[in-house]
Computed example of a mutant assay.
Amino acid sequence: MILKGFKEKSNKKYINKCTASRVVKPTNAIIKTIGVVVDGQQFSDLEWINRLAESLNVNLNNLKILSLFNTKKEEVSVYTNTFSEKDLGWKGQLKSQTAKDFVDTKFDLLINLYQSDALALQVVSAATQAQFKVGLYDANQDLNDLIIETKLDDKALFKTELIKYLNILNKLSNE
């Protein structure tokens, strides 16, 4: 039990280190690649994510989704790339190759679609190299460049607000 607390503290230090050392360079680069971090227990609408990417004029081949899914025997995830809390080691180390590959990918946009305080989701969000990070109001606000004040189940509002702000920031192509 004590080791679990130390492990949690080391991961929180890692998150703080990542957020403090992150340098945001303002660019007018158009979004071509999107990464989505989602809690599979809270959000399971894969089609909505695909439609969101299409609305942002991003090819579905340039969309990667990583889901936190703490499996139970009778449950199956709708997402193909999953990891669990057990895949989180000390100091932000990820044991899952799927999560490592996701973190190593450079994205133009990272969308954090979770409201929980799951440490594994926060570590992945902090470690992912993305030019621009968007998240929900209830999540850890230090991880995101843009915070949309909505609930996870209000998908239509999230989509319209995201498109509105990305247009203002000249991040979307007009094709």
Rank of each mutant, 00 (worst) to 15 (best):
A20T: 15
R22D: 05
V23E: 13
V23I: 15
V23F: 14
V23H: 14
V24A: 07
K25L: 13
K25Q: 09
T27P: 01
A29H: 15
A29R: 15
I31N: 02
K32M: 03
I34A: 03
G35F: 03
V37C: 08
V38I: 12
Q41K: 14
Q41F: 14
Q41Y: 13
D45N: 15
D45E: 14
I49Y: 03
N50W: 12
R51P: 00
L52I: 08
E54Q: 13
S55K: 12
L56V: 05
L56N: 00
V58Y: 05
N59S: 15
N59D: 15
L60V: 13
L60K: 14
L60A: 08
L60P: 00
N61Q: 12
N61D: 11
N62V: 08
K64V: 00
L66V: 14
L66G: 01
L68E: 03
F69P: 02
N70D: 14
N70V: 07
N70Y: 02
K72L: 12
K73D: 12
E74D: 13
V76K: 15
S77N: 05
S77M: 07
Y79Q: 05
T80A: 11
T80Q: 14
T82F: 03
F83D: 02
S84F: 07
S84G: 10
E85Y: 13
D87A: 08
L88C: 06
G89S: 13
K91I: 10
K91V: 10
Q93I: 11
Q93D: 08
L94P: 04
S96T: 00
Q97R: 11
Q97C: 03
T98M: 07
T98I: 15
T98R: 06
T98K: 10
A99E: 02
D101W: 06
F102S: 03
T105D: 00
K106E: 14
K106S: 14
D108Q: 04
L109C: 06
L110R: 04
L110S: 06
N112C: 12
L113M: 10
Q115I: 01
A118N: 13
L119P: 04
L119M: 11
Q122Y: 04
A126C: 08
A127L: 05
A127T: 06
A127P: 03
A127W: 01
T128H: 01
Q131C: 00
Q131Y: 09
Q131A: 08
F132G: 02
F132E: 03
F132D: 01
F132L: 15
K133G: 05
L136H: 06
Y137G: 08
D138R: 11
D138P: 00
D138V: 00
A139V: 00
N140E: 11
Q141S: 10
Q141D: 05
L143T: 01
L143R: 05
L143P: 04
N144H: 12
N144E: 10
N144P: 01
D145H: 15
L146I: 12
I147P: 03
I147C: 04
I147T: 11
I148G: 01
K151T: 15
K151V: 12
K151F: 08
K151A: 11
D153S: 14
D153R: 10
A156D: 07
A156K: 12
L157M: 11
T160K: 10
E161C: 08
L162R: 01
L162V: 06
I163E: 08
